[in-house]
């Protein structure tokens, strides 16, 4: 991502409160954090994302590690904020999508590629978000946040093997539901 080679410099400056460095972090990570949150808590995603970055700023002075670790740490904060929100709201563990909505995004025809182009990216994320909660979170963290199995396992407080099992089931489910699937 955008930070990559400058990460150490940016981190060091951010730890001193340099606005340019904090802005670089925000610009780099905000879209993917928001992308993750938007599909887990659509109504609160913006506020949650802001809360996440305030938390990042509060803790950045004590952070030590690589960019990958930093990304994982940021998503750990995001995941915990999300969990806090869920506890507060006492929501159901899944947010089922109405059949009509799914039907709207379900393509007809056999040409897989053309169909997927017609679906568009938004429905792609919607499909992922429609997976069972744990599966959706694994896929979003792996694909949207670009995190490793170990990072996701740490964030979700699960074993890596459990995360692999979840991602397998998610992929199978997507394959089954998408056109062209078996």
């Amino acid at each position: 991502m955008a930070l990559s080679e400058r990460f150490d410099e940016v981190l060091q400056a951010a730890q001193t409160g340099a606005p340019w460095a904090l802005e670089a972090i925000y610009r780099d990570l905000h879209p993917i954090v928001l992308g993750f949150l938007r599909h887990r808590a659509p109504n609160d995603a913006e506020d949650l994302a802001a809360d996440v970055f305030i938390g990042v700023a509060e803790g950045v002075g004590r952070f030590r590690g690589s960019e990958a670790r930093f990304r994982s740490w940021v998503f750990t904060i995001a995941y915990r904020r999300l969990a806090d929100l869920r506890r507060r709201a006492d929501r159901r563990r899944t947010e089922p999508i109405a059949a009509a909505v799914l039907a709207e995004h379900t393509p007809v025809g056999d040409a897989e590629h053309d169909v997927m182009l017609a679906i568009g990216t938004r429905s792609a994320l919607a499909r992922i978000a429609a997976l069972p909660e744990a599966q959706a979170e694994v896929i979003l963290l792996r694909v949207v946040a670009d995190l490793s199995v170990d990072d996701v396992a740490r964030i979700m407080r699960r074993r890596p093997g459990a995360v692999r099992a979840l991602q397998h089931r998610a992929l199978q489910r997507l394959a089954r539901e998408l056109p062209g699937g078996p």
Partner: peptide
């Protein structure tokens, strides 16, 4: 076989978040 659409979907999801600009 059967996962081509999944690959496309995941790439589309990846593209969406990375083309979003922070507000």
């Amino acid at each position: 076989p059967g996962y081509g659409a999944v690959a496309t979907l995941l790439e589309a999801a990846r593209t969406e978040v990375r083309t979003t600009t922070a507000t």
